[in-house]
């Protein structure tokens, strides 16, 4: 029996069998609408977040304090743009059957229909923030992304292979900046402690709400069902805490949560819940820098519209 005579129902069953068997799905394979939409939401958000994520870090590229650091952070932010490009190419293949293209994704971003990651709505106030982003935000990203390295959608898994390899360098780059500050003058130590105080809530937000009870919605259930990811938000957050709390403390920093402790019985970190109302605000693009960053993207996009017109005129 060929695919076109199979009933939708059978296709769905066959697809679920493939997922259960650990099969990989390619861009041209049949897939249920629910799967396609979940992938589009996940991957276009991931892609656009890489691009929006360049903006907070970019503020510190020209200001990086040495030639070596300038070269390092330039390479890092360039990688992030590269990840954005790689992921948007994956998303483009998924939205093509829906008659959409990259231009639509940009317009979705500007209209608030396509969100960018909550961590990129925050202000970067010092060089310490630039280091902390590299170390802990990229560290957190490694945890969520390696969780999807074996994603059922093969083009995404392939993109993630390369992205994760580069993220490891980013985390090392960030760690090197932080170590230099933590071993430096009193002022430098203060700079990195301030950065941690500022970013702690954002780092807890990073993995998303523990369940839909917290904020009203979460995409985690469907992505787990289709084997796009393995662990829940809370499991990932716990993994992050286990990996980084000892490292943060070992360089003499204080985590701004006096209630933080590891519970031997449940083998879980107990921590002060962040204010999930702030998270919801960010999700509505009402975070500290949401509108500014969107404006920066939108203005530059509008100001260079003539270039894209010129290029397409030439191809046409």
């Amino acid at each position: 029996m060929t695919a076109d005579v199979l009933l939708e129902k059978d296709l769905q069953a066959q697809f679920e069998e493939r997922i259960a068997a650990g099969d990989k799905i390619e861009a041209d394979d049949w897939m249920p609408e629910e799967y396609r939409l979940a992938l589009i939401k996940l991957i276009s958000m991931h892609g656009i977040s890489e691009i929006m994520g360049a903006l907070p870090e970019k503020e510190w590229v020209p200001k990086a304090p040495t030639l070596y650091r300038k070269l390092g952070i330039m390479a890092k932010v360039q990688d992030e743009m590269g990840h954005g490009q790689l992921l948007l190419r994956v998303a483009e293949d998924l939205i093509k059957p829906l008659g959409k293209n990259r231009e639509d994704l940009m317009q979705d971003l500007f209209a608030g229909r396509l969100k960018f990651h909550n961590v990129f709505h925050m202000a970067t106030k010092s060089w310490g923030d630039a280091g902390l982003i590299g170390w802990l935000v990229d560290g957190a990203a490694i945890i969520t992304q390696t969780n999807m390295l074996n994603a059922s959608y093969a083009p995404y898994a392939r993109a993630l292979q390369r992205i994760c390899a580069e993220e490891v360098f980013h985390a090392q780059h960030g760690e090197a900046i932080i170590l230099a500050l933590a071993e430096g003058t009193e002022k430098q130590k203060e700079m990195v402690q301030d950065a941690l105080n500022r970013w702690w809530e954002a780092l807890l937000f990073f993995f998303g709400p523990p369940s839909s009870d917290t904020t009203g919605s979460t995409k985690q259930d469907i992505t787990i069902k289709y084997k796009i990811r393995i662990n829940t938000n809370e499991e990932l957050r716990q993994g992050f805490l286990s990996k980084y709390i000892p490292r943060i403390q070992s360089i003499g920093l204080t985590i701004p949560d006096p209630t933080l402790r590891f519970d031997e019985e449940t083998q879980k970190w107990i921590y002060q819940q962040p204010n999930w109302e702030n998270f919801k605000k960010i999700q509505r693009n009402e975070g500290p820098k949401s509108q500014e960053r969107l404006k920066l993207r939108r203005t530059s996009y509008d100001d260079t519209a003539w270039v894209r017109e010129a290029l397409s005129a030439q191809i046409g």
Partner: peptide
């Protein structure tokens, strides 16, 4: 060039331009 980062006409150009910018900082170094 680094001031342009994230603002180029399209993403592919952002990647290429920032690579050139980075090379050039290497030359200055």
């Amino acid at each position: 060039g680094s001031e342009w980062l994230g603002l180029a006409p399209h993403i592919e150009e952002d990647v290429a331009f920032s690579s050139i910018t980075q090379d050039t900082m290497g030359h200055a170094t």
